[in-house]
Design a protein around this nucleic acid. Structure first.
Lengths: 324, 324
DNA sequence: TTGTAAGCGTTATCAG
DNA sequence: CTGATAACGCTTACAA
């Protein structure tokens, strides 16, 4: 493949002039510019981006760390990031971690190695202090309800949203409430669990540890929940469910067991993804896609000012439908 | 950041020796190797991957072109690609195109610019001959039922699968069959349309153009289908639907209109994604994730032998459930 | 407005 | 086993 030197030689100019044309610098005479463009055309030249990266010390690429792509929540988040990234002409490099810390570190190592200019963590499993080691190498954005000062973050107020759901159920006369959470190890789950325990105390209801069901992530996990429900001697009258997928799975599986929602039990979930609308599930909207675009904007902001570390909080909204 | 020269100087060896250590080359004395490793450790050195890329003329990255990330089909495909890519230590660079040809070309230009070593097209809108211009620059894999020889491809037999669905409906006594397709412009839709018309002729049924509904991609499109159905004077007794999402949306919306499946009309769809299982939708399984991993394997094969252009066809499977 | 030349940080060849 | 040194292809002072 031809290189910039060859173009220069054939066009009868210097390499810097070619470079200037390539980068739309001012101060290039039209004559030379034309000659260069013509030669580029003729040789079907395309510049080697790796050389540009090496020379500039940056790549206009950002790493996106997420546990799995194949889940509506992360797909939507990623789509938000991708759309915004395209507007800014930055490419996305994917790091699918399956919640594996080593894979997350891999992304950070690629940051050190200058493959990417920064990282957006859609989910995080590595310890915070490990992250700090990489602070300063490049912008790092967290999509979590973070309570630290070092990095910008984008999220909703998870505990508040959770309490909103709980309060709504209570306002509808429910006191025997079970909850379905995602990964119990996650900080979010810990906070939600605490909020649940507290709320039960406030309304004078017994706290039943067995009414906290973990690992509820996908639609098929809804079946698991119903299976457990059927086993229980004492039944809850309502479920607060971590995401629409699981709620949808529960409702479908309930029907398979001659149970109806909300008559046998009420369900409220999170996300307001399309499935909840079509199934009439009452849900608390999480603006997933905007979370993604905001995360990317925070990345841009931090790349302009390394000290930028705002905590962006997006609002949630309750959609009353027919499952409560 | 320290570079290889500095490491060499401090460790008292040459840069080549450092490079050898970095790349696990044999023929480095343990003494020097240790010295180098110690210095690397001490300076917290990390090698600049852009320099490596420039020097080697490749990046171990592959571009993935897809219209949208936020759809179960493409998420699953991407996940398959990502898992396989990880095994081979290659990074994925995302190109979300929204079926826009320019965006697809962008990926090909990045290939020319050596940002990526090759491209996997999860969907394609650009003309074939345009693709040919880039042939030879790097491995290119198509995830489509391709009938050309230039590139390897991975897919299912779309027309066969479509006929399988049609035949199944006919075998269950249905003759008044409507179909829901995705993007009507796509080659797949064209082929399916033709197959539909032909089948109607074979069973001696009238071909009704208005019973072909396009733009059925997402769960919310199911509502649109039901809206149309309600308008029709003459009703079909069955629908063959392009994907599970739409089928799910249709069934939910049918229920909202006091219609029941399969009593009022039967539904069979494609994918066998989790939602179809939980809703009891009869479906033709498309091994989406394997399609992704196979695509990546084809990429690897082609990177070893540029002439490699096998057409990989994965089997589909009918899952009889309760919607027909 | 233009050109020269010094980086950017590796790898790879070749001689020892 | 080891080390010079020439690529790789571009950007960017600096000088003219």
């Amino acid at each position: 493949m031809a290189n910039i030197r060859e173009i220069a030689r054939l066009a009868g100019v210097s390499v810097s002039t070619v470079s200037r044309v390539l980068n739309n610098h001012p101060y290039v005479s039209t004559a030379k510019k034309d000659a260069v463009l013509k030669t580029i055309e003729k040789l079907d030249y395309s510049r080697n981006i790796n050389a540009v990266h090496l020379s500039q010390g940056k790549t206009n690429m950002v790493g996106v760390v997420l546990p799995t792509i194949n889940h509506p929540y992360f797909s939507a988040l990623l789509e938000g990031i991708a759309e915004e990234a395209m507007k800014h002409n930055v490419q996305l490099v994917l790091f699918q971690t399956d919640y594996n810390q080593d894979k997350e570190l891999e992304a950070l190592e690629q940051l050190r190695g200058h493959l990417i200019d920064g990282v957006i963590f859609c989910s995080r499993a590595v310890q915070f202090d490990l992250l700090l080691n990489y602070k300063g190498i490049g912008p790092t954005v967290l999509c979590e309800d973070a309570d630290q000062q070092e990095f910008p973050s984008v999220s909703i107020k998870h505990v508040e949203a959770f309490n909103l759901g709980l309060d709504y159920l209570v306002s509808k006369g429910h006191e025997k409430i079970a909850i379905c959470l995602g990964r119990l190890e996650g900080t979010n789950s810990q906070k939600r669990k605490a909020a649940y325990e507290k709320k039960m105390k406030v309304i004078g209801e017994k706290f039943r540890r067995e009414w906290i069901i973990g690992q509820c992530l996908m639609i098929e996990d809804g079946k698991k929940v119903i299976d457990e429900y059927l086993e229980w001697d004492e039944k809850p009258t309502a479920f607060l469910v971590g995401n629409d997928q699981v709620a949808a799975g529960m409702i479908a599986e309930a029907k398979n067991n001659e149970l109806t929602v909300p008559e046998d039990f009420a369900v409220i979930s999170f996300d307001n993804h399309p499935i909840s609308k079509i199934l009439g599930i009452t849900t608390i909207e999480i603006p997933t896609k905007q979370l993604g675009s905001s995360a990317f904007m925070a990345y841009i902001d931090q790349s302009k000012d390394i000290e930028y570390s705002d905590k962006i909080v997006l609002p949630v909204k309750l959609w009353e439908r027919k499952s409560v």
